[in-house]
């Protein structure tokens, strides 16, 4: 679900009216911070945040932390995504397996992913492995559910065609079922990417001493609110760019499909 007005609605087009509010807020904070008798150690003004962020960018600590977070998110997505995809395809193709596993899935799925943090911490200890496994656990569910329903709703005539053509099981999945279900699987992927980033930052803030979330915690505990806010803004930028990237990819995919259908 997208809002109608966005800041960048096409890559070349920037919606200037949308930028009025953010610019006013930043200016207001900057001027207010200088005029009002606040202690800047606790209330950093935007220029201080930008300076701290720029310094962290130059000494590489910000990029290093970003790399750690994105690595964990990507590995977790790959792992959880393939498990979810395989599971979703299996359950979508074999109604018997789906019906028999309903109860087990519905029993495990409502567990909040953050509740897995202590379990992973106990079994795997802090580090990359633990973060990857939690991301995998949380990303697998939406992909499994979406893939299953996408495959269940593949046009039955396509399946009949594949039977008439005497396609084998694997070529039927690869040539007929997956392409037909792809757009909806991609929606799930977009959802899962957003989830992966959120889970990564959550795990890092809560328990794991790597990545952007931990960088924020350290800045907060070292009484560097300027750096803490710089991390916060940066996390927002990373999340926003990922979302933009996936939205354009999705548009490209849907556009190609519509094109081929003509």
């Amino acid at each position: 679900m997208d809002l109608k007005q966005t800041i960048v609605d096409r890559p070349s087009h920037i919606n200037w009216r949308a930028l009025v509010l953010p610019i006013l807020v930043i200016l207001g904070l900057e001027i207010g911070g200088h005029v009002l008798p606040l202690e800047t150690e606790f209330w950093p003004v935007p220029s201080q945040i930008a300076t701290a962020g720029w310094a962290a960018l130059l000494n590489g600590s910000l990029l290093n932390a970003t790399l750690e977070t994105l690595t964990a998110a990507t590995l977790g997505l790959l792992l959880g995504g393939s498990v979810g995809l395989a599971g979703g395809i299996t359950l979508g193709l074999f109604p018997v397996a789906n019906k028999l596993l309903t109860f087990s899935i519905e029993a495990v799925r409502p567990i909040p992913p953050t509740a897995i943090i202590p379990v992973a911490l106990l079994v795997l200890g802090a580090g990359m492995t633990m973060e990857v496994s939690i991301v995998a656990f949380s990303a697998a569910w939406p992909i499994l559910i979406f893939t299953r329903s996408a495959i269940q709703s593949v046009e039955p005539r396509l399946i009949e065609v594949s039977k008439v053509l005497c396609l084998g099981f694997f070529s039927r999945v690869w040539k007929i079922v997956l392409p037909a279900a792809l757009p909806r699987i991609f929606v799930a992927l977009r959802l899962a990417v957003a989830i992966a980033l959120v889970v990564c930052v959550t795990v890092e803030v809560t328990a794991n001493p790597i990545g952007l979330g931990y960088g924020m915690r350290v800045a907060q505990q070292a009484l560097r609110p300027d750096l803490m806010f710089a991390y916060l803004v940066w996390i927002g930028v990373v999340g926003w760019s990922l979302n933009l990237l996936l939205t354009s990819l999705q548009k490209l995919l849907v556009w190609r499909q519509a094109d081929e259908g003509r």
């Binding site: 809002l3 930028l19 509010l21 957003a194 959120v198 930052v201 803030v205 979330g213 996390i235």
Partner: peptide, 12 residues
């Protein structure tokens, strides 16, 4: 549109 900027920010 400004909400669009804030939305991808993880609450954690």
């Amino acid at each position: 549109p400004s909400l669009e900027l804030l939305r991808p920010l993880p609450a954690s």
